[in-house]
C-alpha cells in the first residue's frame, strides 16, 4: 500500500500549481482553472485522511461532497461573470478589468 505522505505531497504539489495559476495568469478563465486545481488538491487530502485515519468516521467523504457542490456553484457564477464582462468590454484579461480601480 501507499503511505499517506505520497498523497499529501502530491496534493500539495497540485495545490501549489493551482496557486501559481491563480496568481500569475492573465486570462480570467485560466484563473478559474487554477481555483479548480486547488479545490481538487483539497479533495484528495480530505479523502486520504478519511481512508488512512478512521474509515468509520465518514466526515472526510461528506466534506468532499460539500466541496463538489461549492466548486460547481463557484464555477457557474465565475464563468457567468467572465462572459458578462466579455460582452461589455470585449476582454477576459484580468488586468484589463479595472473599472473599480482608481
Amino acid at each position: 500500500m501507499v503511505p499517506i505522505s505520497w498523497y499529501l505531497i502530491w496534493a500539495a504539489a497540485l495545490f501549489s500549481i493551482g496557486l501559481f495559476g491563480v496568481l500569475s495568469r492573465k486570462n480570467a478563465v485560466a484563473i478559474l482553472m487554477g481555483v479548480e486545481l486547488m479545490l481538487n488538491a483539497v479533495n484528495i487530502n480530505l479523502v486520504a485522511f478519511w481512508r488512512y485515519l478512521d474509515v468509520r468516521a465518514i466526515a472526510g467523504q461528506a466534506f468532499a461532497v460539500m466541496v463538489f457542490a461549492v466548486a460547481a456553484a463557484e464555477v457557474a457564477v465565475g464563468l457567468a461573470l467572465v462572459i458578462s464582462v466579455y460582452r461589455r468590454r470585449q476582454t477576459v484579461a484580468a488586468d484589463e478589468i479595472d473599472l473599480l480601480k482608481w
Partner: peptide, 16 residues
Amino acid sequence: PFNKNARVGGLAALFV
C-alpha cells in the same frame, strides 16, 4: 499568458 506578477507568483507557490 502571464501577468507581470508571474515571478512573485511562482515564488509564492514554491513557498506554499
